[in-house]
Design a protein around this nucleic acid. Structure first.
Lengths: 137, 137
DNA sequence: ACAAAGTTAACGAAAAGTGTTTAAATTTCG
DNA sequence: CGAAATTTAAACACTTTTCGTTAACTTTGT
């Protein structure tokens, strides 16, 4: 009935996330919505799990019309990434849509938690479309 | 068992989407995966539904820590958008993270299907965070 | 160390989602 | 038009999710 329109999160889950965003503790929320704090915890947790899944789902979409370009190893300096991308793309005869600066910004925005200062904190997979669009997964 | 790691789409759904991307018809896919064409249809359809829900879920996340800035009416010239955004943001004493040009590009990338040439083809909601990040939904 | 906040495990009942089939409708296109 | 492609509806068995409880455990901050 209503499942046709909704996203992944249930009313309960959105409710908890909203209260959480306001800075309330699980106990406070539990009192408001009349349940146990343990239940608030599991609801919040499953909400996070659903969000993770939503992201992964869209990741799949991006990689569906992209081909894997290269793996950028953990520890790589952010400023070394563009030249890696450009040389790999050249092997495939694809012109990258980004210049050096915007490629770095693109990476920063795509994976805000994958680097500290200037070094990647984990491996990042780079994908490319025929149109030169780059995606980091 | 495996549901902990996966995204929204089932193996079956990804399978169908991949074949579809290759240009196969539902009948051809039905033969390959040994089921009826009607079933391929429903699998593909529920895959699309799952993708829609994934997007909507992330939309919710974005708007969770944003406040509604303004509605940009259908028909608005793309090049008139930045000044609208800037003046609304100023009312809230928030400095927008984007300059005029990158704001237009940001809108183009966020809503690729919401404009024709230079005119918006539908209403677009603009949201802003305290940090000046803009989101179009 | 204490108390508050958060997490985890095990279980149950209700709700929602998935893959199928079969048969009938609709759309698309040469 | 007419054939192939796609969509829809109803029904059924099956699996997964969700919300909830209780009770014990771990983390965090003072």
């Amino acid at each position: 009935m209503d499942s046709m329109k909704d996203g992944l999160l249930t009313e309960r889950q959105m409710e908890v996330l909203r209260y959480r965003k306001q800075g309330l503790t699980q106990q406070q929320i539990a009192d408001i919505i009349a349940t146990s704090k343990a239940n608030v915890c599991t609801i919040e947790k499953s909400a996070m799990e659903n969000i993770r899944r939503a992201k992964e789902t869209l990741d799949f979409l991006y990689t569906l019309d992209s081909t894997h370009l290269c793996t950028i190893p953990s520890g790589t300096d952010l400023f070394d990434v563009p030249s890696m991308i450009f040389s790999e793309a050249e092997k495939l005869s694809i012109k990258v849509k980004y210049d050096t600066i915007s490629l770095i910004n693109h990476l920063r925005e795509s994976k805000p938690k994958s680097y500290t200062a200037r070094a990647l904190s984990e491996n990042v997979e780079a994908y490319i479309t025929n149109e030169g669009e780059i995606y980091f997964g």
